[in-house]
Amino acid sequence: MTKTTSTKYNAPALDKGLDIIEYLSQEAVPLTQAEIAQGIDRTPSEIYRMLICLEERGYLIRGANAGKYRLSLKMYNLSHTHTPFDELKRVARYPMQNLSEATRQSCHLSIINNDQLLVIYQMRSPSPVSLSIEEGTHFSLSMTTSGRVLLAMLSEEKRLDILSRDKHYKTWNKKQKDKLLAIIDDIEQDGYRCSKSKLTSGVTDLAVPIGSKNANIIAVLAISIFSSSLEDSTNIDTLLNTLKKAQLEINKLIGA
């Protein structure tokens, strides 16, 4: 293994340990101490203590007979201790808090789960009266503003695949299906969606995408408000600008 990177601060022991882990991951077969040393351009004596340490810490497993080393599942388990969506919720907390305080409305963060919209985080409004959408609640993708924004973030193939299993979409005629697909196209162009809720009368939803199209992590940030509280288009513009500010902050934090 040729080492081409240079760092301002050297940590030789850490470098050796990471070289061993990365090389075993790359080779994907059990290897002897000598084979590992040759693979990372070191001598067997240089890596002896590191192999013992990694084995004792549970990162490596050594075969009883041939004495060959292989990676354990510890790295996998560590990487799955917190899901990407746990991290998304963590970084979204303060932008959502600022959004809620600025708009005096509750806001919520949702993802796709089992072909449905799943609310994973909510920031309650500081006002005494506001809408609340509980975390863990599932909704239809085709029937919700947030769901349609999420569908707009998918490739056409994946989008149609999900819709083919949607209980509402399956019962619609061609005109209704075409209308939904046209709305999704508009969302792709506009970058947001504002519409009256199809599930709750008297409610207007405003939603923006989080993440980037076809990325591993996609979500939607939304505000649901009583339609009667919307005085005019200026009010909507103000809400949208504040929502987009929170969107920008969250996307920056997740590297989107």
Rank of each mutant, 00 (worst) to 15 (best):
R57G: 05
H168G: 04
V208D: 11
T81P: 05
D166I: 04
T234E: 09
H168L: 08
D190S: 13
D161C: 12
L109V: 01
Y59C: 01
L141Q: 00
S132Q: 12
I36L: 03
K174D: 15
V91Y: 04
L154G: 00
V220F: 00
L163P: 00
E249W: 04
S79M: 09
E231Y: 15
A34I: 10
T83I: 13
S229Y: 08
L78P: 03
E22R: 06
I112Y: 01
M153W: 02
V29T: 09
Q116L: 11
G191K: 02
R165Q: 10
F226C: 13
A152Q: 07
T81C: 15
L51G: 05
Y48G: 14
S197I: 02
K167Y: 14
C53T: 14
S229M: 08
Y23F: 07
A222Y: 02
T137H: 11
T171N: 07
A152E: 02
T5K: 09
I225Q: 02
V129S: 11
L31G: 03
N216K: 09
L60S: 06
A207G: 01
E231P: 05
E249D: 08
E101M: 13
T43W: 14
T7F: 09
P12H: 03
R49M: 12
Q176S: 09
S45K: 13
S127N: 08
R159Y: 00
G211T: 04
L221F: 03
V208G: 04
R42P: 02
T5S: 09
K74D: 04
T4G: 13
L239M: 08
E35N: 08
D205C: 12
L60T: 00
E46A: 15
S212C: 12
T7V: 07
N241R: 07
S155V: 06
S6K: 12
T171W: 05
Y192C: 08
A102C: 05
A64I: 12
H80F: 12
D232E: 01
L118H: 01
I21N: 08
I236T: 04
I225N: 03
Q33N: 12
V91W: 02
S72W: 01
M50Q: 13
Y59H: 07
T234I: 10
T7C: 06
I20S: 03
Y76W: 05
H80K: 11
Q247C: 04
M75A: 10
R193C: 07
N216E: 15
P128Q: 14
T83S: 15
K245P: 11
T103I: 02
N65W: 11
S142R: 00
I250T: 06
D190C: 10
R90M: 09
I210V: 02
L88T: 05
M143A: 08
S45P: 09
E46C: 14
L71D: 04
K89H: 09
L230H: 01
I47Q: 00
T5W: 10
T234K: 15
R148F: 06
G39K: 03
E46S: 15
R124M: 13
S6I: 13
K177R: 13
